[in-house]
């Protein structure tokens, strides 16, 4: 339980909680990036350099920017007028609280077996590459297919429909 972990955990929670609760959607996206960057820093702290940088590249460089683009294109940057009942807000928050309570209880009571801190594990980029090309080659190919399908599908979905029928 180091001070670095506490700081990064605090920024992660602050960022993500703000992302889920702020009114202005653009502020939400910016807070989200703060949370995700601190999460990437947590990965770095855990020794997973490659995953941490991938996290920044994918989430800050692509997902957050895409979300910002979507916000701009759907004109939802202006704070929406709240309508309807707020009963679902309360119940949703309650469900989340219950889920956290259950997960927290499970973590609290179940991780005694893994308390021993082993030596710092190494995850050099080369080994990740070798593993991707040997043991994990089938998942890699499937991910490639999935990403290609997502690229084409997203393009077609977002395309103007008048142009598609032409």
């Amino acid at each position: 339980m180091t001070i670095t972990f506490l700081l990064l955990a605090a920024t992660t929670i602050t960022g993500t909680a703000a992302a889920m609760s702020l009114k202005n959607l653009v502020h939400c996206v910016l807070a989200l990036t703060l949370g995700l960057v601190s999460l990437a820093a947590l990965y770095l702290q855990l020794g997973a350099q490659f995953v941490g940088f991938t996290q920044i590249l994918v989430y800050v460089g692509a997902v957050a920017i895409l979300a910002a683009f979507a916000i701009m294109m759907t004109r939802s940057a202006e704070p929406a007028v709240l309508t309807g009942s707020s009963s679902f807000r309360v119940s949703g928050a309650l469900i989340a609280l219950v889920v956290f309570a259950v997960l927290g209880w499970a973590v609290w009571s179940g991780t005694g077996a893994l308390a021993v801190l082993g030596p710092e594990p190494e995850a050099p980029v080369n080994e990740i590459g070798v593993a991707l090309m040997h043991r994990f080659v089938l998942p890699l190919e499937i991910i490639g297919l999935l990403l290609t399908a997502a690229l084409i599908g997203a393009g077609i979905l977002a395309m103007d429909e008048t142009r598609r029928t032409k």
């Binding site: 350099q49 490659f50 991938t54 590249l57 460089g61 920017i65 910002a68 701009m72």
Partner: peptide
């Protein structure tokens, strides 16, 4: 001398886009 230096370069470089968005918006 990072193990994943090139990845780091592109990852941090992508933060520039976000600041451009922040400035414009």
């Amino acid at each position: 001398n990072l193990n994943a230096g090139v990845l780091f370069f592109f990852a941090v470089g992508s933060m520039v886009e976000l600041s451009v968005f922040m400035a414009g918006w």
